[in-house]
Amino acid sequence: MNKISIERLNFFYKDKQVIRDLSLEIEANKILSVFGPSNSGITTFLRSLNRLYDLVPEARMEGLILLDGKDIHAKDVSLTELRRRVGMVFDVPTPLPLSIFDNVAYGPRLGGVKSRAKLMETVEEALRMAALWDEVQNRLDIPAMSLSGGQQQRLCVARVLALKPEVVLLDRPCSGLDPISTAKIEESLCELKKRFTIVIAPHNVQQAGRISDRAAFMLSGELVEEDSAQMIFSNPKNSRTNDYITGRFG
């Protein structure tokens, strides 16, 4: 069974429609890239998967999103649990004004993990998975803000992984990063898909090509096509996808 099924998703901010009739199946343990020009509704799409748009009073959604076959808008779904299962990394690093350790331990601790040893174990594991452990293991107590941009972003990845999510959403996670940090994040993503389902909005087509198993092209709120990454980037069915990939627009 697919990890997430989306059926006829329509999304509105006030009167403006930002996603049109989107249906998509997301497979478990794969990396899906959702790419397209800006203002295509990609961020909104990602945020609808963990219901982060609930913060926006004017937002309205139609359609069905199933996580493991269960409607995420069902009344008995706990928002807290949903967001722990579907973690999110943002386009700019968003470290909290806490130490490195506390940034990663923040979620598990408030989720009820009390023992310091258990927290330490979780934090180490998460930092290792995000390829940051070696750089910070001796200074977990310094403020997270003093890390470099690339390290901060990996910290944010670790923070999400510490919650042991099932799905990880990444919204242009490398947009402000240098090539070396980007390479590190991409490398760890390929490692992470063994354990998680990953949906990423890549910051360009090249990145999408490097890391994805599946790829979906979005344009003005519509899903143009979705296929294996190999097909999309070598032989897209839709001419608009082809135009975008070959750089004729966007």
Binding site: R83, F90, G107
Partner: peptide
């Protein structure tokens, strides 16, 4: 604003976010 969004995205409740962050 990312303090709040970041914290909520980690599955914290609104009140936990206010009190702890």
């Amino acid at each position: 604003p990312h303090y709040k969004t970041g914290s909520l995205a980690l599955g914290l409740t609104h009140w936990q976010t206010i009190y702890h962050l």
